[in-house]
Simulated scan of single mutants.
Amino acid sequence: MSPTAPAARRLSSPASRRAFLTLVGLSAAAVGCGRATATGGSGQQTKKLRYQGTVGQVTLAELAEDLGYFGDVKLEWVGNTISGPQDIQSAATGQTDFGGAFNGAVVKLIASKAPVKAVISYYGVDKDSYSGYYVRADSPIRSAADLGSAKVGMNTLGAHSEAMLDIYLKRSGLSPARADKVQPLVVPPVNTEQSLRQRQIEVGVLGGILREKALATGGIRPLFSDYELIGAFSAGTYVMTERFLKQNPDTARTFVTGVAKAIEWARTTPREQVIARMTEIIGRRGRNEDASVLKYWRSYGVAETGGRIDDREFSLWTEWLEERGDLPKGRVDVRSVYTNEFNDYGKKQGS
């Protein structure tokens, strides 16, 4: 799931803008909905964290729980999501206790006065974990100049994939008028490869396991990747509401520190062992998923030790949104967006 949701150029149409605001433009009143308190009014901190998963994948939270890093805190799966903005909306409105999204989408949510905090990075971009923008091997598209009105399939609008597309078009020197002709479209990740091969789209955004599987099949080639554009960086964070953090500080600390430990476990453990552990997790949870694609997993891509958050992981996208005119200048103070308070792993590392 993927830096910020560029609601900018791509969301210029009323329909697109309304759809994006439905995902991340929540009012404070909307955030007040959901369960009244995380503690159920008993004064005792919750030991159960509701969350959304991803089909055929093991999230860092799920890995941390399986490794025993959460102690007596347990996860409660309430369904799956394919959209970061939708996932953090669910957390903000109290339907879940945490959610994760691209950092730009987090900025947008907080700019809309949603009282949430980013607490730890959970995915990023590196040489092994990146989103590639692929075309068919026989495609005439070789550069941004060849895109014309090409359809670009991605998991959701106004998030990581669209931001990278915008940056690519701008850096390639395309005028706003030419860039506006490129058409980002929502295509579920599990369908992107098929849609590309069947010529329903000209470019498909593929990452992680799905990218490796498609490359192994052959017949496609890269146009560019987010790693080529930006380099290594943490791209998305888990968020929790400020109310949850206030009412459940120990549980939050257990969760965040456990995820941090899982990040480092996955970073330092041989890849084959990580994949074996993930395969066992999928098999035990019984969601009727295909675990065979896990053999293509390479990295979670989190840049900082223990997933600790730095200003630059939000300032890049805040400034970009301001430049695009989608966010009023000065609306968001990046230091108010996140906290490392609950990450004991990072503190123990002296960072």
Rank of each mutant, 00 (worst) to 15 (best):
T269F: 10
L316A: 10
R18S: 11
T54H: 10
V190H: 01
W265Q: 09
I88Y: 05
Q200M: 14
I263P: 14
P184H: 03
E242H: 08
I230F: 12
S225W: 00
L185F: 01
L11T: 03
G219H: 12
I220L: 12
D290F: 03
G307M: 06
V332K: 00
A36S: 14
G307F: 13
W317C: 03
F70M: 11
S225F: 04
G346M: 08
G41R: 02
G330K: 04
V107C: 13
V135I: 09
E62Y: 00
D72A: 08
R199M: 06
T59S: 06
E242P: 08
G325R: 04
K113E: 07
K74R: 15
R10E: 12
V186H: 02
Q89A: 15
G71H: 00
R17M: 10
G148Q: 13
R271C: 05
A177R: 07
P189C: 05
D226A: 12
R308N: 08
G43S: 12
P6D: 08
D138C: 04
L196N: 04
T305I: 13
L63V: 00
L21W: 11
G258Y: 05
P188S: 02
K348V: 03
K246W: 03
P270I: 03
I88V: 09
S351W: 10
L169P: 03
D311A: 15
S112H: 11
E65F: 00
R331W: 01
A105M: 04
A29F: 07
F314Y: 15
R243C: 02
T156Y: 10
G132N: 04
Q52A: 02
